[in-house]
Write a protein that binds this DNA or RNA. Structure first.
Lengths: 135, 135
DNA sequence: TTTCACTTTAGAATAATTATAAACTAGAAT
DNA sequence: ATTCTAGTTTATAATTATTCTAAAGTGAAA
């Protein structure tokens, strides 16, 4: 994803392309493979990579803006920290609790044959499968 | 589950049946249906129910002891608080984000037909399905 | 009944996240 | 170009969930 596209992506979601947002967006979206991170890990990586320090609060703000705009998804993982994923399509995850690492599973790689109906007046929003790993 | 069984349950897991543990265990395990809770909600319910106040730290300690002993399972839910479940068998969950409520799904009510193999040297520990609900 | 390892407890400490309010800035209006 | 302003960033304080600490309490073995 080129810089011009990053700017488009931001603008089209109503996000003013500030220096900080562009830097974070480039870091997150200019890559081939999907990327999983926590705010803490992202902060570390950005600090290492760049000269200009972005405030931690800004990273929180930006990540949440990107999530609201649909550019990131939040992954539920047991534990204290919140994980985010640059893959926003419908998919599933392996979770390796040894390394606290998430691995994407393509939606087509899991087929669910039988599923219960939603309770009283509720509808199914989505189905998430977690495959927990051990050594 | 009768009091005598509660005492047995505690002793057989190497947990000395103190006043606090017995009270919490009776509250959690003397019920027909499975029960989902956070430490916060459990604390409130216990405070309401009982005359003697149990320290919050004790509730944390006890819940973790029960989990380690296999009497409770921890449920991964997106969000800040940790959920526990008195159902320790293999099963799945509905999650209603409107009400922050968990509902058990029997393991037999979900059949997964196709599943990817675990990556490099890892094994599958278990598979958890979350069905997120909307109105 | 004494003893002691295990527990409980109140309060301090920690960690992740959110709130605050002042300083800054992208981009529209002049 | 310069001014203006709503949206943004920032440092810091506040909040929330959880864990730690160390002193006081207590089952139950001897």
């Amino acid at each position: 994803m080129k810089k011009i596209d990053i700017l488009k992506k931001l603008r089209s979601s109503g996000l003013r392309p500030t220096k900080q947002r562009v830097e974070i967006a480039k870091f997150l979206f200019e890559r081939e493979k999907t990327f999983h991170f926590t705010v803490e890990s992202l902060n570390k990586l950005l600090t290492k990579k760049s000269a200009s320090k972005i405030a931690l609060a800004t990273i929180y703000n930006t990540v949440h803006s990107f999530k609201t705009a649909g550019h990131l998804s939040e992954v539920e993982v047991r534990g204290n920290k919140t994980y985010f994923d640059t893959n926003v399509s419908n998919h599933h995850h392996f979770y390796d609790s040894e390394t606290a690492e998430l691995i994407d599973i393509d939606a087509n790689d899991i087929i669910i044959q039988k599923i219960p109906k939603a309770p009283n007046g509720k509808k199914i929003k989505n189905v998430e499968v977690f495959i927990n790993l051990k050594n």
